[in-house]
Design a protein around this nucleic acid. Structure first.
Length: 554
RNA sequence: GCCCCGAUAGCUCAGCUGGAUAGAGCGACUCCCUCCUAAGGAGUAGGCCCCAGGUUCGAAUCCUGGUCGGGGCGCCA
């Protein structure tokens, strides 16, 4: 369905008082280019360049313009660069026409000094989106018939990071876990506990995990009779949800709510949700069952909501759950699902459309599978077979920070292999330490400099040239707000992993090239301390978006 | 058969709403601690960006068709 992206970065000036240096630069380049070409529809881009030898910043304006003007790009670039030089004046060191028609802008040292001052003066703030949404992120939602697996960890880490990103750019976000505490799987689960209590055969497809015996133990202690399956089911699920919640919290993931499937039935919400669709005229009866005409909304076949026996299907219940979400007034519903639920997307999307609720968008983020590899082979990860590696075990093995980074650094639409042996043995070489180390180094310097006593105000040294490593670092820091918006709107926290790594690399290079404490030259030490401070904050904020800590010492 | 995801360095992967000489980590090799944390840095080696067409001034990126790998196509949940 059409989905006006609510987290697109604000096109207009978010902060009329103080335009950030990069945006200001982009404005000048764009305005000058358009004036030159006399065409408002052309939008030349300005890129920060990771390669200093290609210019501090680079514009492809000439290539964009040349087509409309019918002139060779390099010829346009030569003329245009002169105009840009005039416009930018003292902020610019020089320009250079390069390649097929790029204009490289080498900015003056003063521009960089002002940029750092801007960052220190609040430039690290991320401007909010133009129209903040009221968003519900549903994630994990693993069956409450066993502990959370390491694979669920990917969902937990992803859902949490996306939530943090969306909040960072100004959305109001709630998180929820859907508890499938009804249906045959739960009967099976209760039956498995009972079997362990009485020492009899497990049901076919029963749950074989060690934890089931623990649950049996607990049931016995609380005096629940093995044949009271209903109570076993309720208590067993309750204990599992409790344990799941605890695992999530120890992973730093806080769910605002756990929504029980069973409560849908008990609260009459299933009838209500289905009634809503019936009234909208999108259902029909056939073979004694009630169907939703999802094919009207792009699905490839229609789906049953209520079985011929009168029982709602899982889909019917889930539709009702989503009807409830819609009624709660969210502007955007995001479901984070595993790749094995992909076939479910079209019908749910159709159901939401059938609810005919304008102003509500629905979006599904599919996470590809994660395979656990141990001893060189893939483990099965089946709760039923009891052959699982739990999230708790993973965290005990490699720790929260390493696990978070590991699970988040890859794009969500890529299948992952999590090699546990490798994760354990290489945990000290996890890229997260590379980033954290940069932060620890910074804190060490700041401590040594005598925290808080630095006269940052004296930072504008005019006597000493800004080192290329400093320029590169400042350039990366200036990208922060744009990176956050990009990652938020694309629901791509892995970009923040990459960004944080780049900032750390730029800092390590700066650390090598530039003495901070005791740097000689008027105001140079203070100026570099300020840069350290700003870099540290950028790293800390970036890691926080991923739910990763920034230790002062390592 | 249909739908979704992937294919980029020896390995694991970034880059994909078109731009310059395609990057990082790990692994291999060579260097750098009288100096703010060597969990770091500098350098070397290593690439038909799966294949074939197409669009474009320009394609790893977009389109079409293949190949290979993963997942999904219940009145199960």
């Amino acid at each position: 369905m059409s989905n006006p992206d609510p987290s697109r970065p604000v096109p207009a000036d978010p902060n009329p008082g103080g335009r950030d240096p990069v945006s200001a630069l982009r404005d000048v380049v764009t305005a000058t280019s358009r004036a030159f070409a006399g065409d408002q529809s052309l939008t030349p881009s300005l890129d920060s360049s990771p390669k200093p030898e290609m210019g501090d910043y680079s514009s492809n304006a000439a290539m964009v313009m040349s087509k409309g003007l019918g002139r060779p790009p390099r010829e346009v670039a030569a003329e245009l660069s002169g105009l840009i030089e005039t416009e930018l004046g003292d902020l610019l060191d020089r320009t250079e026409v390069a390649g097929p028609g790029f204009i490289n802008l080498f900015l003056a040292d003063d521009w960089y000094r002002e940029a750092v001052a801007d960052l220190a003066g609040g430039g690290l703030g991320v401007p909010p989106v133009e129209t903040p949404g009221h968003i519900l992120v549903e994630s994990v939602s693993a069956n409450p018939t066993g502990p959370l697996t390491a694979a669920s960890g990917r969902h937990a880490a992803y859902g949490d990071a996306v939530t943090r990103l969306l909040r960072k750019v100004g959305h109001d976000v709630a998180t929820e876990y859907y508890v499938n505490d009804g249906g045959t799987q739960i009967e099976n689960f209760a039956g498995s506990i009972a079997a362990r209590m009485t020492g009899t055969e497990l049901p076919e497809d029963g749950y074989r995990g060690e934890y089931v015996s623990d649950l049996a133990e607990r049931a016995r202690a609380e005096g629940i009779a093995p044949d009271d399956l209903d109570r076993l089911a309720r208590s067993g699920v309750g204990w599992m949800v409790e344990s799941i919640r605890a695992s999530l919290i120890s992973f730093g993931v806080e769910m605002d709510g756990f929504f029980s499937e069973r409560s849908l039935y008990e609260g009459g919400l299933v009838e209500r949700g289905i009634e809503r669709l019936r009234e909208a005229g999108h259902t029909f009866e056939q073979d004694g069952a009630l169907w939703l005409k999802t094919t009207d909304f792009g699905d490839d076949k229609d789906r049953v909501l209520v079985r011929s026996g009168g029982e709602p299907t899982y889909f019917g219940a889930d539709v009702s759950y989503h009807a409830d979400k819609v009624e709660r007034g969210y502007s955007l519903l995001i479901d984070v699902l595993g790749a094995d639920h992909h076939g479910y997307v079209a019908r749910m999307d159709a159901a939401i459309q059938a609810m005919e609720q304008p102003g509500v968008s629905f979006e599904v983020q599919i996470l590809q599978m994660i395979h656990l590899v141990e001893g060189g082979r893939r483990t099965r990860m089946s709760k039923r077979a009891g052959d699982i590696v739990t999230l708790d075990e993973l965290l005990a093995d490699i720790g929260n920070d390493a696990a978070r980074f590991f699970l988040l650094q890859r794009s969500s639409d890529r299948t992952m292999d999590l090699d546990l042996d490798l994760a354990r043995s290489q945990s000290s070489e996890n890229p997260v330490y590379y980033v954290q180390y940069a932060y620890a180094r910074i804190q060490s310097i700041l401590r040594k400099a005598g925290e808080g006593d630095i006269d940052y105000g004296a930072g504008a040294s005019t006597a000493v040239a800004v080192d290329p490593s400093e320029k590169a670092l400042i350039g990366r820091l200036l990208d922060y707000p744009a990176e956050v918006h990009e990652a938020a709107s694309r629901r791509a926290p892995h970009r923040i992993c990459a960004y944080a790594t780049e900032v750390a690399a730029a800092y390590h290079a700066f650390y090598r090239d530039c003495q901070v404490i005791g740097a000689e030259g008027e105001g140079l030490e203070a100026s570099r301390l300020l840069l350290c401070e700003v870099t540290g904050e950028t790293i800390r904020h970036s890691l926080a978006l991923l739910g990763i800590s920034a230790p002062d010492r390592m």
